[in-house]
């Protein structure tokens, strides 16, 4: 187990480094830089001189050669220091810390909706006996995955908020403001969960142990919920680790549509102004969340399925 953990930690560090480097390369390759954008004054003509621009570049260290900027930023990042936003001078760490709670709240609610909705749909689809109903239920997730988040969000706002006046259309205040964004964000994630879970449930129900349970006279509920669900839960759980990334990415769109504050909006703003330190900080943070979530899922796996623990123990033995 310790060796497994050590290997996973080394892998995680590599993932973090790679995402930082990739983000830096992409930002550096873009033809513009944040200082030029600032000096352009929002696309309108400005009379800022080249000297003034050069001065500002120096302030932010943007006049240094790329490799040097990279090494310095990497060294600082390794110490947890991502510097200051070029757009407004706020420390990157503080901006992320301040915008995180709102996004966590949103993502948490969305995850709950997705797990309950997606899991429930999968259970229902494998439970019902009528062929047409089962088909209809099984095709719902495909619809959910393919509907663009942006469009779903606007549709919900128009109907629920503007037409029926039930819930607010924007903002972070109050429990009611989170309902529509959470549903919008949960839709694609819940749909994927439903697809994976339904598939693994069907596989599990066709396994010999399910037959055995039937033969021993277990009730349908006992076979379904007791035997199959536990065995079928591992694939959706693994997928969930990957879907956390989707939740973070989806928050960029959802927070913009619903005018919410959070990491997604911060990301959109930072990318638009090519705020290099801010984007690097957010990308690294996202990678960290992703790595930790997957590590957690890997550690949870053996609890659900003891065979996994045995497998890992075996592999850990030197050949």
């Amino acid at each position: 187990m310790a060796r497994f953990l050590a290997r996973r930690i080394v892998q995680s560090v590599l993932v973090l480094w790679a995402s930082f480097t990739l983000a830096f390369v992409v930002l550096y390759l873009l033809p513009s830089d944040p200082v030029a954008i600032m000096a352009a004054g929002g696309g309108e003509a400005s009379a800022v001189t080249d000297e003034q621009v050069a001065e500002l570049r120096e302030t932010y260290g943007l006049d240094q050669p790329a490799w040097r900027q990279y090494l310095e930023r990497l060294a600082d990042a390794a110490h947890g220091d991502f510097g200051q936003s070029v757009a407004n001078g706020e420390p990157v760490g503080r901006v992320i810390a301040e915008s995180l709670p709102a996004t966590l709240q949103l993502a948490g609610c969305a995850l709950l909706v997705a797990a309950l909705g997606g899991g429930g749909l999968a259970l229902a689809a494998t439970w019902v006996r009528r062929g047409w109903l089962r088909q209809a239920l099984l095709s719902l997730p495909a619809l959910g995955v393919s509907a663009p988040t942006f469009w779903v969000g606007l549709l919900l706002v128009q109907l629920v908020s503007f037409r029926w006046g039930l819930l607010p259309a924007f903002g972070n205040e109050g429990w009611d403001a989170i309902v529509l964004p959470a549903i919008t964000l949960a839709l694609p994630v819940g749909s994927v969960l439903a697809q994976v879970f339904a598939k693994s449930l069907r596989t599990a129900l066709a396994e010999p142990y399910a037959e055995t349970a039937w033969a021993k006279g277990a009730s349908p509920a006992r076979v379904h919920l007791g035997h199959a669900v536990r065995n079928a839960a591992l694939p959706p759980l693994t997928v969930l680790g990957l879907l956390l990334g989707n939740l973070l990415a989806g928050s960029v769109v959802v927070e913009s549509v619903f005018s919410r504050t959070g990491l997604g909006r911060t990301t959109a703003t930072a990318v638009n102004s090519q705020d290099i330190p801010m984007v690097l900080g957010i990308v690294s943070f996202g990678a960290l969340v992703f790595v930790l979530a997957n590590l957690l899922v890997d550690l949870l796996g053996p609890l659900l399925d003891p065979r996994l623990a045995a497998e890992r123990a075996e592999r850990a033995v030197p050949a």
């Binding site: 606007l154 259309a169 924007f170 619903f258």
Partner: peptide, 16 residues
């Protein structure tokens, strides 16, 4: 701050 133009219009029409 409401970035979506459709949401701004709707927010005005619904009195928000």
């Amino acid at each position: 701050i409401i970035p979506e133009s459709g949401v701004r219009t709707g927010a005005l029409q619904s009195g928000q």
